[in-house]
Amino acid sequence: MNAAVPLHISDLTVAYHRKPVLWDVNIALPEGKLVGLVGPNGSGKSTLLKSVLGLVPRSSGRILVYGKPATRNRALVGYVPQRETVDWDFPVSALDVVVMGLYREIGWCVPVRRRQKEKALAALETVGLAEYAHRQISQLSGGQQQRVFLARALVQDARLYLMDEPFAGVDAATEQAIIALLLELRAAGRTVLVVHHDIQTVPTYFDHVVLLNMRVVAQGPTEDVFTEENLRRTYGGKLTLLSDAAEALARRGAQRG
């Protein structure tokens, strides 16, 4: 496959408890773009990211990252999970969390060295949190926690970033900081796929949009794709027939991807 395509998903079907969440999804992302992944609640946005990372089993389909199966090209992928997925009472500092982005590079059983800490500190500096490096993570505000997660992905120096709702529940300052960061990443030629909730800001933030509701409703440059017509198709509720059919199939045990 084409090694220049950061993320190429073909015929991806993912089912939870045999009920499809994603159904025959086909996506190809252009390199060096900020891509918004937009769709209503339960449309499978987070599941899409997780299946790229191999966190959820997929019923069928192929996922290529720069031409190779995603699980073999993990080093090229940086991941920012949703903030609620972890216990923020955990006894680690912001710096510790950021260094986690380098664990793979450090390797099994080898302790973290000064060089990696400095790298992590630099990443914290980029997101404007250098002075909070040694704070325990529960003592950070929601926006700051989100930025720590961003720094952890940044320090990995990946080529493709997957971000799961980085704008959810953050203050205006953090939102601006994240946007500045995204622009910087784009300038450095990185590709960023962002799960996004706020339809209003999509045209200003993203160059490229994927509209998702179980299937890909539309994808392409924002100005072409982000139309009222497409949004109505994504959010309009007409697509409930899709999930009705999926459920009927699951009930019959006939879902074979």
Binding site: W23, D24, N26, N213, R215, V216, V217, A218, N230, R233, K238, L239, L241, L242, D244, A245, A248, L249, R251, R252, A254, R256
Partner: peptide, 28 residues
């Protein structure tokens, strides 16, 4: 409605046709 290409749609329909009941058919 869902913006699929006609080629993709046939494969899906081969599976879904077996589970579409009267109510779903009239809704479609």
């Amino acid at each position: 409605i869902a913006g699929q290409s006609p080629a993709d749609a046939h494969g899906s329909a081969m599976r879904v046709e077996h589970v579409i009941d009267a109510a779903m058919q009239s809704e479609l």
